[in-house]
Design a protein around this nucleic acid. Structure first.
Length: 725
DNA sequence: GTACTCGTCATTTTT
DNA sequence: TGACGAGTAC
């Protein structure tokens, strides 16, 4: 039961969104405006008031984390079994659909899911098979081609191939489709495409689901791709209500296909009458919000929205100009220590950066100062080599025709099946159109104690011996029978991998606990369910240490999180906004949204830092402060060590110049005018910039200048109208 | 098979 | 600078 008071705790806009009658609507939910609360309360409200049954609700999110969070919050509001509700990621829901209708979708009941790694190795294997030069056609490019095609809803025969290259790609795509079909595996993009085609082709089925899901809710709508939007249209039909929640200002995933333009399209195509803006922010104090609002105001492509808070202005935003990346890291560590000393929990302090490479200096400084920290990103549990190996054995038990899995472990741990033997098997595959497993079986006869025949026997005995066991017992058995555990135990350098293998047993145990009793007609087999879980949900990407630690992550990874204190580091042109973004359509605006996301993570205290010089790709680079710093009004900032940087460039002698310890090569013109590395200059055409390199003297003198607007250029001093700024 | 060297490359990332 | 993959030597 929802307490009657629950609705009263919502602000008027939130309440309007929660109680909206059945119709399509767009909820523009700003950062920290209670978006998840609105989504979950609406679902609970719909069920509570009898407008919808749990089975009649479809809610889509982008991450498993978000889906889980939503389910937890719904079950805390309502005493129902949330399993009947379709709440999940696009891929998770597609999987559910395809499991339930695998025959109609032309898939085996126990089809397996390839993750990105598996997909790449499947492509590599295929290309070897087809004798395609991987120098000329990079496997990664092929994967990209296939995934892009699928994400446009195109099958191999529907791709237009105007040139030889594309023609070739298309051939590989065709062969890949056949290979996947033969092996009974689907990749991520296939989950979406296959279920889309299923709905489209199969009218009774489509009508069934359209009649069932009268209410469809979409989280992070700005992150939907064009194809996901089409998928939603199939599900919704012409008559259903889509409740889309999103924030165009937080669209930071265009590079992986997100199309925030879906919001506009949605308004038209679903004849949306209600656009509700959630603008009251419950997270950050005034100055932080002002900075965010003003910054994002520089973007032109916006639906328009302004965050406000009932709280006061709070502290000013602190700005630190560092001499070097090293200095920047030192400063940050000192401040963090002070914050922790003041009683701020380390886990409430976030250290954000644009690109992962920036974390190293920061980590080093934190480590030296013995400040506990935790870096997000990197390998996740189910992506680890040893875990993938173990899963491959599991997959072979479920389906020995799974060539990807077989290749992964046929010689791991090594059992004398070298490249030659595998070549032979693959030749048989080519000639006879059979799976590697079948080829290996045929090789039996003479000596079954070694080589491929022994491997066949091993897998068969594994299957026999695990037949009566539960999932966790199966895993445990395989780990030993395969020799994985003893292999890693014996290893000098990799013995810590054993722990992860043990953790896999725990994961299997946890999985059956959660899944038993929930076994549905959609997921008849615990083993397949577990493998699906592993593929679809690669697990946390940080070690589950749970201890108090400062949080280090990219700005992307910080989306959706909040912290008491936030440091945004590396605010230099070229890094943030990233130089590569300049080549992309609307690249700068996306970078600005990134900055917006970063700023709005902070509740009370925000630090912005930049470094005048930075080690990048093994070279010292001189940077100019990010333009985003100029876009934040001076009145909101408090400079810690340097004059404010407003106006076109730094005026007066910045603090760092006096203390700079960097060598400064000099270039003089004939007229005796001297320029040196690190100096701020201004060019008639290119505007402000900083000298990053000097060459030659006199009439031959040249300088390389990193211009804030137009990148790095090499200029002859004799001709360039360059003036000190 | 493993351990080494060399060359290449260097946003952002979920499923 | 430094991480990673491919290729080579033992």
């Amino acid at each position: 039961m929802i307490p009657a008071t629950y609705l009263e705790h919502l602000n008027p806009e939130q309440r309007a969104a929660v109680t909206l009658p059945r119709q399509s609507a767009l909820i523009l939910a700003g950062a920290g405006s209670g978006k998840t609360r609105v989504l979950t309360t609406r679902i609970a409200h719909l069920i509570q008031t009898g407008q919808a049954s749990p089975g009649g609700v479809l809610a889509v999110t982008f991450t498993n984390k978000a889906a889980k969070e939503m389910l937890t919050r719904i079950s805390s509001l309502l005493p129902i079994n949330p399993r009947g509700m379709w709440v999940g990621t696009f891929h998770g829901l597609c999987n559910r659909l395809l499991r339930a209708h695998h025959r109609e979708a032309n898939l085996p009941a126990l089809f397996q899911i390839l993750d990105s790694q598996d997909q790449l190795s499947a492509i590599k294997r295929l290309m070897k098979q087809l004798n395609i030069d991987d120098e000329k056609y990079a496997p990664k490019q092929v994967v990209y081609f296939i995934n892009s095609a699928k994400e446009q809803g195109l099958r191999a025969n529907e791709v237009e191939a105007l040139d030889d290259m594309t023609q070739r790609y298309r051939e590989i795509y065709t062969a890949y489709e056949q290979q996947c079909q033969r092996e009974g595996v689907v990749d991520f993009a296939e989950l979406l495409l296959r279920s889309y085609e299923l709905l489209r082709r199969n009218e009774p089925l489509r009508q069934h689901y359209q009649a069932r899901f009268k209410y469809i809710l979409v989280d992070e709508f700005q992150d939907t791709s064009s194809f996901q939007y089409e998928w939603l249209k199939q599900m919704a039909g012409t008559d259903n209500a889509v409740f889309a929640v999103g924030d165009d200002d937080q669209s930071i995933y265009a590079f992986r296909g997100a199309n925030a333009g879906n919001m506009q399209t949605f308004l038209h195509e679903f004849a949306v009458e209600k656009v509700i803006k959630l603008e009251q922010n419950y997270r950050s104090q005034g100055n932080i919000l002002d900075a965010a609002n003003i910054l994002i105001g520089h973007n032109s492509e916006r639906l328009g929205k302004n965050l406000w808070t009932a709280e006061g202005a709070g502290e000013p935003i602190r700005l630190y100009a560092a001499n070097s990346d090293f200095d920047e890291a030192q400063f940050i560590v000192e401040e963090i220590r002070a914050l922790i000393k003041d009683g701020i929990a380390a886990s409430q302090i976030a250290l954000l950066y644009r690109s992962n490479a920036q974390s190293r200096v920061l980590e080093h400084a934190l480590f030296s100062a013995s400040v506990p920290y935790r870096v997000y990103g990197g390998l996740r549990f189910f992506e680890r080599q040893e875990v993938k190996h173990a899963l491959a054995y599991l997959r072979l038990i479920a389906n020995p025709e799974d060539d990807t899995a077989l290749l992964r472990v046929i010689n791991f741990p090594t059992r004398g099946i070298g490249a030659r033997s595998i070549e032979q098997l693959q030749a048989a595959v080519r000639e006879q159109g059979i799976s590697l497993w079948q080829a290996a079986c045929k090789k039996g006869g003479k000596d079954s104690t070694k080589g491929a025949p022994a491997f066949v026997l091993l897998i068969e005995s594994m299957r026999r011996d695990t037949a009566g066991l539960n999932l966790a017992e199966q895993v445990e058995h395989l780990l030993h029978a395969s020799g994985l555990v003893s292999h890693y135990q014996a290893s000098k350098t990799e013995s810590d991998r054993v722990e992860n293998l043990e953790e896999l047993i725990n994961a299997a145990n946890a999985f059956i606990k959660e899944y038993d009793g929930e076994r549905t007609e959609e997921m008849p087999d615990a083993l397949t369910a577990f493998l699906t879980h592993a593929a679809l949900e690669a697990g946390d990407n940080q070690a589950a240490s749970g201890q108090e630690a400062v949080q280090l992550m990219t700005v992307h990874a910080a989306k959706g999180l909040e912290f008491h204190s936030v440091f945004i580091s590396g605010l230099e042109e070229g890094l943030c906004p990233h130089e590569n973004s300049m080549f992309e359509q609307d690249g700068l605006e996306e970078e600005r949204r990134l900055m917006y996301v970063a700023i709005t993570r902070a509740r009370r205290r925000l630090y912005l830092t930049f470094a005048q010089s930075r080690m990048l790709h093994g070279q010292l680079r001189y940077g100019v402060p990010s333009r985003f710093l100029n876009e934040i009004p001076e009145s909101l900032l408090k400079a810690i060590n340097a004059p404010l940087i407003h106006g076109s460039s730094v005026s007066g002698a910045p603090a760092w110049e006096a203390t700079s310890t960097l060598a400064s090569p000099v270039a003089d013109t004939e007229a005796g005018q001297a320029f040196r590395v690190g100096q701020n200059v201004s060019h008639a055409k290119f505007g402000p910039g900083v000298i990053v390199n000097c060459h030659g003297r006199g009439v031959n003198a040249e300088v390389e200048v990193n211009f804030s607007q137009s990148g790095t250029k090499r200029l002859a001093l004799q001709y360039a109208k360059l003036s000190p700024a």
